[in-house]
């Protein structure tokens, strides 16, 4: 783009006029807005103080003329019909927009997976909170809030603070968790509600109610 403008400035006999880019961006915010606006057919100051700089010279970019330009360019430079060229341009624009978007904040863990916690004997004895491994904290709220732990048909409200990344089992401990058991926490509604299961040592399945974990 700049190269073509530069070539045009050379042919006009004043290539340093390209420094107007610097001047407009730094010192003329209103003019900049108008120029960027008119190139999409949306100038908002055509009758105002900038009108002398936003005259008919760029009006090729207005919708009606754009179609003419599109047909001409499509035929002469791309050898395709205007609809095909329009599609190509749209795809290119979308590609540019996607490229400029900030990188998505990927959760460090997928909501469908859970986190297995292994409380130690001391943790159980003292009813300490269980620390969520850092790579699994993406499953939990990003702000300090209450979450619901559903365990064996009962729902427990617990505070969760991402600063510490710990959950409190409290009464769930009383269901008979032993050292070596695995406490599996799985999101039911990520950020709000989680299922808690206790997998007894040596077993692959969650403990059943009649095993004393209610």
């Amino acid at each position: 783009m700049v190269d073509k403008v530069f070539e045009a400035l050379k042919s006009l006999g004043d290539p340093f006029a390209i420094d107007a880019f610097y001047y407009i961006d730094r010192d003329e915010p209103k003019l900049k807005k108008c120029l960027l606006g008119i190139t999409t057919g949306g100038a908002d100051d055509k009758e105002g103080e900038m009108s002398e700089y936003i005259d008919a010279k760029l009006e090729v970019a207005l919708p009606a003329d754009k179609m003419q330009l599109l047909k001409k360019v499509a035929k002469e430079e791309f050898d395709v019909d205007e609809y095909t060229l329009a599609k190509i341009w749209i795809i290119e624009q979308l590609t540019l927009k996607i490229r400029d978007l900030p990188a998505p904040a990927f959760p460090s863990a997928l909501p469908s997976e859970g986190v297995d916690l292994k409380p130690t004997e001391k943790t159980i004895e003292n009813r300490w909170q269980l620390a969520i491994p850092k790579d699994k904290r993406g499953l939990f709220p990003e702000t300090d809030k209450k979450i619901t732990l559903a365990y064996d048909g009962v729902e427990y409200k617990r505070s969760y603070n991402p600063k510490y990344g710990e959950i409190s089992l409290a009464k769930i401990y009383e269901s008979g968790i032993s050292s070596g058991d695995i406490v599996r926490v799985t999101p039911l509604q990520p950020g709000q509600k989680y299922r808690v299961e206790v997998i007894k040592q040596g077993s692959n399945k969650p403990a059943q109610k009649n095993q004393g974990l209610t």
Binding site: M1, K4, V5, E7, A8, L9, S11, L12, D14, F16, A17, I18, D19, A20, F21, Y23, I24, D27, E28, L31, L35, Y53, K57, L58, V60, A61, L69, V73
Partner: peptide, 25 residues
């Protein structure tokens, strides 16, 4: 051969450069 829009923008830049930037500085 510059395309029409580049040419028209160039004309505008010359106008802005000579009529606004240079007098301003």
């Amino acid at each position: 051969m510059p395309k029409p829009i580049a040419r028209k923008l160039a004309e505008k830049l010359v106008k802005i450069y000579t009529e606004r930037k240079l007098p301003h500085y």
